[in-house]
Design a protein around this nucleic acid. Structure first.
Lengths: 222, 222
DNA sequence: GCGCCAATAGTACTTAGGAACGAGGCCGGA
DNA sequence: TCCGGCCTCGTTCCTAAGTACTATTGGCGC
């Protein structure tokens, strides 16, 4: 019995995805749960242990970018996450996959294709929309792709630290939040700075912040 | 002879605005210049002194949010800046005006209304799209409005410092860039932190970064 | 068992950040 | 003319940040 969680603030989308899941054979017997906020999703995973798959909307109340994906990858590294999104910017897809998403399914994808995608993911493969031309080499996304590359080189705990860094917290506060010593936080921060090739926490925050939102800003203008 | 600069990366828009300017009587005799990048605009203003009006597109290559407006307000506080934008989110308008824009003209505005808006601005008034309902009280924009309010309380030099802070620069680097002593930079940073009601440069950067991009992210999802 | 790596944590050290003073110059408004 | 705000710069002091080591633990693959 596989546990699959759908996280999307739009009930209609959740319903459609649940239908597609029901039509997917590769998972065998499945149990589908739905949540409408990131907090709800995290609370559930914390209580009931890791799920076997998470379908995550990129845009949820209170979470604009890849924060949700990053959080999930950090706290539950072994749980595959498929990104669901109304947007299908190649750069966005590239970043999502670089950040460890197991797939990227635009909401405009036809049902049968969604089923095919889910079967792929169930088999451990990575799914990307086929009509997007080689996303990783798109010229505009090169910088972000490299940035995403660097972010993926972070360990789960380091991602947690980076996330808290992004809220402007002090090392001491981060240590308290993660229940570890401040020296350990410093060790993580040093490692993060090296991996991101910057020399101050502020620069690290700027880089991370860019990834969270830049993709949206770039396509906001019609 | 009034000097007016149009900054927009789209030639068609520039042309349309130039036409509207030609039909505007309140400025008297005018000289219209066009630039397609923010850097070009700044270079021109640096060389030839302040203009009498700048029409600035919100979305230019390399500048996603209010960075251009902030920069202009910081370096040339007495030059009125009218924001041109394809977007007309009330919150966006509120923020732009709070940041000192002399007006906000959506690209969908009909020609005669643009002329009316420019006449208003020429008379020292502030123009906002009339069909947007009391932008400053929109519930979702309250936080950002307050934030914008705080940012406007910064002095021009402090805005310059904040902008450099936003790139992750050290105090020493900021001092070098602005050709002032590091102690002076520290004084500015301290003042900025007080005004923004935060206690570290990183938090200040996060706040500023939120304003630059949040509006775009909030409306990116259709 | 052995080696690798993430995570933890410690010590010692240097530098950056920031607060809290004071103080002088400049400029525009009352 | 005086006052106040902005910008400048200095001193002193404390804390936060970051580096450079070392070391232990536990998991995971060979």
């Amino acid at each position: 019995m596989k546990k699959i969680v759908i996280a999307d603030d739009h009930p209609m989308i959740r319903g459609a995805l649940a239908l597609s899941l029901a039509a997917t054979t590769a998972f065998g017997k499945i149990e589908v749960l739905e949540t409408s906020t990131l907090a709800e999703l995290l609370a559930y995973l914390n209580d009931s242990g890791e799920a076997d798959l998470v379908l995550l909307d990129l845009r949820m109340p209170g979470v604009n970018g890849f924060e949700g994906l990053l959080t999930l990858r950090a706290r539950f590294p072994s749980t595959p996450v498929v990104i669901i999104s109304a947007l299908e910017d190649p750069q966005l897809v590239a970043e999502a996959l670089a950040l460890g998403a197991a797939g990227f399914i635009p909401k405009s994808t036809p049902r049968h294709e969604i089923v095919r995608a889910l079967n792929l993911v169930a088999a451990g493969e990575v799914y990307a929309p086929p009509h997007l031309d080689c996303p990783l080499t798109s010229e505009a996304g090169r910088v972000d792709a490299e940035l995403a590359q660097r972010l993926t080189s972070l360990t789960p705990q380091q991602r947690r630290v980076l996330q808290l860094l992004g809220t402007g917290k002090l090392n001491k506060e981060i240590a308290y939040d993660l229940a570890i010593a401040e020296t350990t936080v410093k060790a993580h921060v040093s490692s993060i700075l090296h991996k991101l090739n910057v020399y101050s926490r502020t620069q690290a925050v700027v880089m991370a912040g860019r990834l969270h939102l830049s993709s949206f800003a770039d396509i906001a203008e019609v």
